[in-house]
Amino acid sequence: MIMETLLTPTLELDKEGYLKNPAQWTPELARDFAAKANIVLTDKHFDVLNWLRAKHAEGVPLTIRKVGASGLVDIKKFYELFPGGPLKVSSKIAGIPKPASCI
């Protein structure tokens, strides 16, 4: 299932596996990406993912600090939801480019 979705010829991923076109994102696809990172998505995850997608669409550069100030999750919870580098992992699952932030 995971491979099938990810290998769908219309989906283009960059070298590191980030979705090239955020418009191709679906919640189903998010679940597949999450499964690859050993994460089972809950509503809370989707709140964050939708927030990230909305901010990315607005052209806001994303940082962990901004996620912490979003009112959805604090930074600690963000690390818990997306272990192993929360901003990178969540961006990949949200179908947006790899974050280019140092903070």
Binding site: T63, I64, R65, K66, G68, D74, I75, K76, Y79, P86, I103
Partner: peptide
């Protein structure tokens, strides 16, 4: 301007990240 946190907030972020 670069959205860099103050020192104490930075420590809070680092602690929150484990």
């Amino acid at each position: 301007k670069l959205d860099m946190p103050h020192v104490t907030e930075f420590f809070e972020m680092i602690e929150a990240g484990g």
